[in-house]
């Protein structure tokens, strides 16, 4: 099995002494769909930021798509994100006043692809999340669930090795939330590697693998058959 993410002994201490992660070991293989679950404040977002190379650990090693993150400059980390990692946020973070298609195309802005190609791929990605008829709609003309699907299209338009979603259903009603989870399942069936962060145990239970963290430690991982204490 090829490995997309390999964390070992990852610790993150924030200024002020908060230890958000404490010796986390985590391996994610290509094509996996997993939940990273835990109560609020347990360190899930911190973990996502480190896996997404937006932040560096205080100790431990992080390997993403075969690259040792510690050895990369900020420039090369940026390139790693643009080529290999897609993010979906609870708050969508769409650019206001810009059409759905252009929002998705922003996902390829830093890839070096020419503009026409970016727009063509954006149209494909929007169609793939079921929004072929909403290309020209601007964010304020879309429902919450549609906005999150636009954000997912933006995250996957570059076909990243890894898709990271931080509470993707957190701002949605349950019906739209289910539709978004269904979309993530579909994308996974098409080959995408996806990590979903959630504090919702029900959502976590619906995914093939669950990693539970509490107080910055992995307390259960169904892939390893470990069970919470």
């Amino acid at each position: 099995m090829s490995t997309v993410v390999r964390l070992s002994g990852v610790t993150k201490e924030y200024a002020g002494g908060v230890r958000a992660l404490d010796g986390v070991d985590l391996t994610i293989g290509r094509g996996e769909l997993l939940a990273i679950a835990g109560p609020s404040g347990s360190g899930k977002s911190t973990l996502l930021h480190i896996v997404g190379t937006l932040d560096r650990p205080s100790a431990g090693t992080v390997e993403i798509a075969g690259f040792d993150v510690a050895s990369l400059t900020d420039r090369r980390l940026s390139a790693l994100r643009s080529q290999h990692i897609g993010f979906v946020f609870q708050a969508f973070h769409l650019v206001p006043g810009v059409s759905a298609r252009d929002n998705v195309a922003e996902g390829l802005l830093y890839s070096g692809l020419p503009r026409a190609r970016r727009r063509a791929l954006a149209a494909d990605a929007l169609a793939r999340v079921g929004l072929a008829d909403r290309m020209k709609h601007r964010p304020h003309e879309l429902s919450g669930g549609q906005k999150q699907r636009v954000a997912i299209a933006r995250a996957v338009v570059g076909e990243p090795a890894l898709l990271l979603a931080d509470e993707p259903t957190g701002a949605l009603d349950s019906a739209s939330g289910e539709a978004v989870m269904e979309l993530l399942h579909d994308l996974n069936r098409e080959g995408a590697t996806i990590a979903v962060i959630t504090h919702d145990t029900e959502i976590a239970a619906g995914l093939p693998r669950q990693v539970r963290i509490r107080d910055g430690r992995v307390v259960a991982d169904t892939a390893r058959g470990k069970v919470a204490a």
Partner: peptide, 26 residues
Amino acid sequence: MAPVSPRTEGASRTRLKAARLSPRDV
């Protein structure tokens, strides 16, 4: 376990380089 991806890690390692923005993109 996972299907074969078009991106192999060995190939991507040499291509890890930030792209430039074109003047129009700027």
